[in-house]
Design a protein around this nucleic acid. Structure first.
Lengths: 300, 300
DNA sequence: TTAATGTCTTTTATCGTGAAAAAACAGTTT
DNA sequence: AAACTGTTTTTTCACGATAAAAGACATTAA
């Protein structure tokens, strides 16, 4: 096997959803933009839709014949990128315990275990190394540094530095900047979520990420913006892993966000600083309490 | 060809220098530690040294027979890592002009041009991406963001944030910390270099890096320490590229470093902050003046 | 009985290859 | 002639294979 066609399968699944809404599909280039893939992939998708009797396709006319059924979709797991598969698998092992800091990481073994080629694993590890959880020994193996208390503290130290600066930059943005409209929209979403928190508390993490990314973007600094990838990754897996008091935690966070938003809108730097600090402090606390205590870093 | 034996060649060259000093070589494991390679490589080296009549090798006895000649050494260029070769080649193209921001980067073309496989180029680009000069379009090509004024400003913003914090942490270190001894040694090296600046000004950049890394290490934060890789990379190529007033610049920098060191030793946070700020300001200025003005970022 | 050497096994680094996907080009339709 | 469709070329992505290098095990010397 040389390359999986997950791009096609994922785009196909998303394409099926378009069939519910219209009686005929737009042009190929338009579909390409819509689904974020090339025309080549669009044509493969259309070919299959024709084959399975979903549409009648003749040059420009792409008439919808029937509504897609559940079994028209490709299985979810076939739409994932290889790197997503590897990342998930790797993080599961990392968080599932037994992964002591100092332990060495074996490319070949990982590849075999996940059922992928070594190249993909290597590339993943290189990409992943910027998160600071693993480290490469010169022309030798990788070493696990581990999701330790020290890691969490170092991560949050930078996060706090960056976010305080970004928040200040945000508050200083001119009134006609489009970010204020974005902030208003996010505020509405927060209010709505706050009201329905009992049912929708698990939707918070996605909103959280969008909110913080908006703020970080105000820094206009690629290193700050990119660093949020590290935070997002950690929080993503952390949320999946530690479900204790999830509802309460998220309820508190929503409230803090709303206060933070109000502070930003006041454009009072003192208030912004205080609201930001308060929120980051509780975020740090949440993260720290979720770290297994036993794990202490080995001597390298 | 599957893998070059540059590790062996480089270690061999370094091994030759040991022959000048002693009449017989130590044990294989000891040599391994000394040259930073495995015993397998050490044995390959010893085998060749025996073959070329440099040593007589019988089990534990490794007697030096003659002093190595210039042509005993492998050519410098054969001792480089593939990734070093690729990086150099890539940076040359980047700085040599004609590399407009927004331009797309072609893996295959790069690989052919440098004469290496695509895998190595891919891995290089992934590793290199953390420097913020290039960016990947989702399942498509890489895009050059370019060594622009914006890049330099964003880089220095983070650098200043991190270094001020590290310097403060450094000054707060207890008197019995080993870093003070390291600092003393560096101070001596600075004084010596200052006296011989006319001849040795080009040795400054190496000293500069060691000095700043020592300070950053005091932060005990892997993200801060790792970020210095970005700065070091940029300065490395920047120094190679822009030789204008190199002597004067370095002379000023040495003086600033000495003031900075004095401030650290005083452990007076106000003085440290001032000395650090002063040095970083002139470093930023130097970097900014070296950026070609014409290059403006394209619309992405 | 410790620490070396000799030998064998495992892992990493790199390439060429082939399918998926993108992109470029050429020909049609409105 | 602008925007589409049909076709061809190029590029990315992922694999297995292979030599270099690391590492583990067995044996021998001090």
């Amino acid at each position: 096997m040389s390359k999986s066609n997950n791009v096609y399968k994922d785009a196909y699944n998303r394409g099926l959803r378009l069939l519910d809404e219209t009686k005929s599909l737009p042009s190929e280039p338009e579909l390409g933009v819509l689904l974020g893939v090339s025309r080549t992939t669009i044509r493969t998708i259309l070919a299959r839709m024709e084959e399975t009797g979903l549409i009648a396709w003749n040059k420009r006319s792409k008439t919808v014949l029937r509504v897609p059924q559940p079994d028209d979709f490709f299985p979810e797991e076939e739409t994932d990128t290889l790197s997503q598969i590897i990342e998930r698998s790797f993080m599961r092992r990392l968080l599932a315990g037994g992964a002591e800091p100092g332990m060495q990481i074996n490319e070949l073994e990982l590849a075999r275990e996940i059922g992928v080629g070594t190249t993909s694993v290597r590339e993943f590890l290189i990409r992943f190394s910027r998160f600071g959880l693993i480290e490469k020994r010169r022309n030798s193996h990788w070493v696990l540094k581990g999701f330790t208390r020290a890691f969490a503290l170092e991560l949050t130290e930078i996060r706090e530095m960056f976010e305080l600066r970004s928040a200040a930059a945000f508050a200083a943005l001119p009134q006609d900047s489009p970010v204020w409209a974005d902030l208003d929209l996010l505020e509405d979403e927060h209010r709505l979520l706050a009201r329905q928190i009992a049912m929708r508390f698990n939707e918070f993490s996605e909103l959280d990420e969008r909110f913080h990314r908006l703020i970080h973007r105000a820094s206009h600094n690629r290193f700050i913006v990119d660093f949020y990838d590290v935070i997002a990754m950690i929080f993503h897996y952390h949320y999946q892993w530690n479900k204790a008091q999830e509802r309460e935690r998220n309820e508190v966070a929503v409230t803090e966000h709303l206060a933070y938003i109000a502070a930003l809108k006041s454009r009072d730097l003192g208030k912004v600083d205080a609201a930001c600090r308060k929120h980051l402090k509780s975020a740090r606390h949440t993260l720290l309490t979720s770290i297994p205590e036993g794990q202490q870093p080995q001597q390298a």
